[in-house]
Nucleic acid binder design. Structure first.
Lengths: 106, 106
DNA sequence: TATACGTGCAACCGTTCGGCTGCGCAAATT
DNA sequence: AATTTGCGCAGCCGAACGGTTGCACGTATA
């Protein structure tokens, strides 16, 4: 059973849940009202999101409020950093090429 | 057949391919050398990545170089922006609360 | 021209995914 | 004490996933 953030956010329903919960912590029932899906299926999604630490359940009586763990979202951002760096490097090389051309013209 | 960026980067092999190709455009064979997977399977991944515009094929004789389309990566970043904004709002509200407490103390 | 090479496509197969229903359990309400 | 409510778990099922093999086709090389 693969269970990483990228697999978690691959599903559109789960992405929508994350957005919902980002605004304020919500219970499974409250979340389910926003979708055309049975509560149990939402529960499955919440389980997956919790398992990879994107959500944290907070019990309150017989209700469970799921809260977004924003820090975990940063991991996606960190992954994107690689490409930002690589691209930066590419531009540096491009700059060098342009610089060389410039000098040749002299 | 779902086919969006998030589903594309859900697979670890595809993420690795993106990193490889980010450094320099590569052919399917060259990419396949980095994995314990048949060339045809890599081709499948390249097809998926191309279909959602993360990669662009450039034919050169009988070889095909796949190049990263960095712009498409920004879409992920754009999605993350929602959360950055929401969190910013939360902090503002927190600031207000703290401000109110502060004033009450006076 | 015949052969080797680089590639994509089609068909197959076991596993995973994402819905569903039915159930049991604990907390709240009556 | 009995009932309602909120929830998670287990099992089912069709579809999608990610690997495989075999093949066809265009391009380079002998």
């Amino acid at each position: 059973m693969r269970r990483d953030i990228f697999q978690a956010i691959a599903d559109p329903t789960r992405r929508a849940i994350l957005v919902l919960v980002a605004v304020q912590a919500m219970t499974p029932n409250a979340i389910a009202e926003h979708f055309d899906i049975r509560r149990q299926s939402i529960s499955k999604h919440l389980r997956i999101l919790s398992e990879c630490d994107l959500l944290v359940p907070r019990q309150e009586g017989r209700e469970i409020f799921y809260e977004l763990k924003i820090d975990k979202m940063k991991e996606i951002d960190t992954w994107l950093d690689q490409f930002r760096k690589i691209m930066e490097e590419s531009f540096k090389q491009l700059d060098e090429v342009l610089f060389t051309i410039k000098n040749k013209k002299k």
